[in-house]
C-alpha cells in the first residue's frame, strides 16, 4: 500500500497531467526542451528531481521500476529513489534491466539492449546544449528555433585544434531527428550510440531548470562531429575483472591504499547476469571472493 496521506506517485493528479502534457509535447517534437512547472520534491535539486517527476507522472500500479546511478542499482541515490517509489506507489522493483518497464537513470544507459515498451528516464542537470557559448535563454531558444547550430561545432573545432581531439567525454551533444541539438545528460559518450534508434522511449527531466524533453522510439540520434574527425567512443585494454566482458563500460575501482585497482562493469546488473551465466573475469584481485573466503 502507498503511504498514508500521499497520492499515488507523490504528485497530485493535476501536476501529473501537466507533466504528461509536457512529455507528450516532447515526444511530438523530439529533442525540443518543453518548459514545465517543476515542483518542489522531498529531496534537493541535483538528486534527480526532474527524473523523479517524470517517473511519478508515467508510473502505474502495474509497472516494474529499476533505478540506477552510474550504472549501479545499489548506490545511495538509486536505493533512495527506488524506496521512495515503493513507499509512494507500492510498485514492484527490480534490478534486472530486462524485467523493468521503467528505468530511471543517472549518468548511464544499461548495457543490455532495451526492448519496445520500456521507458528510460534520464536525470538531467543542465538541459541547454548552447549555454556554454550563449548565456541568454531568449537567444538560445531563438537559435534552436532557427536551427542556428554552427556554434556547436566551434567547441568541437576548438577541442581538436587545442587538444588534438574532441575532449568532450560525457554529455556529448547530439542531433535528434535531424532537427534539434540536445544534451543527452551526463552519460559517457560510450553510451551515446545506444540512443540512436533505441526501441525504448527516452524521457529527460531537468527539475531545477524546469525542462522536459524526449526521444521517441526508433528516432535518429546522431553525435556532432567533423567528417575528418568522426565521433568515437572510449575503449579499454582490460576486460571486466568480474565477468570478463570486453564490450561494456568499465569503472576503475581502487581497492586499497597500496594502489591495487581493478576494472569492473559499471552496469552491475549486466555484470551479475554474465556471472550467473558462468562468465568469469581473470584480472585483478576480487574483493567479492576475498570477502566470501
Amino acid at each position: 500500500m502507498t503511504a498514508d496521506g500521499y497520492n499515488f506517485g507523490y504528485l497530485d493528479e493535476q501536476t501529473k497531467r501537466m507533466i504528461r502534457r509536457a512529455i507528450l509535447k516532447g515526444v511530438a517534437i523530439p529533442g525540443y526542451q518543453v518548459p514545465f512547472g517543476s515542483r518542489e520534491m522531498p529531496l534537493p535539486y541535483g538528486w534527480g528531481t526532474g527524473g523523479i517527476q517524470i517517473t511519478a507522472a508515467v508510473i502505474g500500479p502495474g509497472d516494474t521500476l529499476k533505478v540506477i546511478d552510474q550504472g549501479a542499482d545499489d548506490t545511495t541515490n538509486a536505493v533512495s529513489i527506488r524506496n521512495f517509489f515503493v513507499r509512494m506507489c507500492d510498485v514492484a522493483t527490480t534490478e534486472r534491466t530486462a524485467e523493468a518497464s521503467i528505468i530511471q537513470t543517472r549518468h548511464r544507459i544499461p548495457e543490455r539492449k532495451l526492448a519496445p515498451g520500456q521507458i528510460l528516464v534520464y536525470q538531467v542537470p543542465i538541459p541547454e546544449p548552447l549555454r556554454w557559448l550563449e548565456p541568454r535563454e531568449t537567444e538560445t531558444r531563438k537559435m534552436h528555433a532557427l536551427r542556428e547550430y554552427g556554434v556547436m561545432h566551434v567547441k568541437l573545432y576548438e577541442d581538436i585544434s587545442v587538444k588534438g581531439r574532441v575532449s568532450t567525454a560525457y554529455d556529448y551533444p547530439v542531433l535528434v531527428n535531424g532537427r534539434y541539438i540536445m544534451r543527452p545528460s551526463p552519460i559517457p559518450k560510450f553510451d551515446t550510440p545506444k540512443m540512436h534508434r533505441m526501441a525504448a522511449l527516452q524521457l529527460f527531466g531537468a527539475g531545477r531548470e524546469k525542462r522536459i524533453y524526449a526521444v521517441p522510439p526508433y528516432t535518429d540520434v546522431v553525435p556532432l562531429d567533423f567528417e575528418d574527425h568522426p565521433f568515437t567512443i572510449e575503449t579499454w585494454d582490460q576486460a571486466c575483472a568480474l565477468c570478463g566482458a570486453t564490450t561494456s563500460f568499465l569503472d576503475e575501482v581502487i581497492l586499497d591504499d597500496r594502489g591495487r585497482r581493478m576494472f569492473v562493469c559499471s552496469d552491475t546488473d549486466f555484470c551479475q547476469e554474465r556471472r550467473e551465466a558462468g562468465h568469469r573475469g581473470d584480472g585483478g584481485p576480487n574483493p567479492l571472493e576475498e570477502a566470501a573466503e
Binding site: 567547441k155 587545442v162 575528418d228
Partner: peptide, 27 residues
Amino acid sequence: LRFGVSAGANVGEPLMAIGGRHYGHIR
C-alpha cells in the same frame, strides 16, 4: 568576435554556421 575561442575558430565559425563539417577544410 568571440573572445573565448581561438582566432582560427573565430574565422571558421561562419563556415560552420553555413554547414561546413570538414575540420581540415575549415582550418
